[in-house]
Simulated scan of single mutants.
Amino acid sequence: MAPENETGNGTGNETVNDHANVSAPSGAAIRKLFADCDAVLFDCDGVLVNSEPISLATLVDVLAHFGAPLTLAEVAARFTGRSSSAPIDHIRDETGKDIRDQFKPFYYDLLFARYDHELVKIDGIDSVLAALKKRQLGFCISSSSSIERLGKTMDVTGLGPWFDGRIYSADFVANGKPAPDLFLYAADDMGYAPNQAIVVEDSVAGVTAAVAAGMKCIGFVGGGHYADDRAGAANRLYDAGADIVLSDMMELSNALGEA
């Protein structure tokens, strides 16, 4: 299936700016949230890069291949923000087959071929990272994706140097999101207490994990996978416990850049 709302040729220089009318918090509200913040933990897919339309559409094809088909809407509802164990469990439940050894190689072959041509950064993310660096705040990636997939993402988009090895995967912990394990692991490894950290997340599972970790949370609904329902997505993230929800990374960049 073709990805939705994608632009660019995958060279790493393009960005996606695909936001709609979601009520934006004021710059003052954003700065207040950062008043006691020392570190920012970014989810990757749907927050740093516009990968979710690609990955969800590819997952539809993979589930059909393994005999456990779901629609794109069903895949998005069930698996956004979750690790690969979730679709693997779905296939086992539907077919009785254990395809753990087959799933990732098959999925990644399809996914990475599309990444090379279709994956782009979220518009404004470089400005956000530059503002955090200027403020001397720590930041990292804390993603449900595997290290292999995160490495491919960094290579294609050129985002890797921003994080200087501070890339944490669900591979590192026993329980993925919505459990808090990954966020707690990342913060501890960087030397921060949970109450010093802000998480930036696009999924209900991720926001739930941030709240369970005792961290503040910024929801983000500017990715292509929310193009048809930004307001609804924002409401779901607020309901899950997000402190504020943004649809444009430049809102965050501009607020952080102000005195």
Results as ranks from 00 to 15, higher is better:
K133H: 14
K177G: 12
A213V: 09
V200P: 05
E201V: 08
L132N: 02
A210T: 09
D171L: 13
A130G: 07
Y115E: 09
S142H: 04
S145Q: 10
K133T: 14
D155C: 03
T157R: 00
L184N: 05
I122K: 00
G138V: 03
C140A: 14
S146R: 12
D164Y: 08
C217G: 07
K152C: 07
S203W: 14
G151F: 08
N195I: 15
N195K: 15
P178Q: 05
N175C: 11
F139L: 10
A210R: 09
M154A: 15
D171N: 15
D126K: 05
R114C: 04
I125L: 04
T157D: 04
G219V: 12
W162F: 09
V120Q: 10
V211L: 04
S169N: 05
A197R: 00
F172P: 01
F103M: 06
D109C: 12
A209Y: 06
F103G: 09
I218K: 07
G160L: 09
A130C: 13
L132M: 15
L182W: 07
Q196C: 11
Y107P: 03
D164S: 11
I218C: 05
V207A: 03
G176V: 09
K104P: 10
A179H: 08
N195T: 15
S142A: 13
L184S: 04
S146A: 13
V207P: 00
P178Y: 00
F139E: 08
A170K: 08
A131E: 14
M190E: 11
V207Y: 00
M215N: 02
A205L: 04
D188F: 03
G191D: 09
A174D: 12
A187N: 02
V128I: 15
I198S: 01
S142D: 05
A205H: 05
K216N: 13
S145L: 11
V200S: 07
K134M: 06
L119R: 03
A170C: 11
D109Q: 14
Y192K: 00
G165A: 11
L184P: 04
K152W: 01
D116W: 14
G158A: 13
S143K: 02
G222W: 00
P194Y: 14
D171C: 09
L119G: 06
Y107L: 13
D189H: 10
E148F: 12
L132W: 01
L137H: 06
G222R: 03
G124L: 00
G138W: 10
V199L: 10
Y168F: 15
Y192I: 02
F163I: 10
G160K: 03
M215F: 00
T157V: 01
P161S: 07
Q136N: 15
M154R: 02
G138R: 11
G151I: 08
K216V: 01
S169C: 14
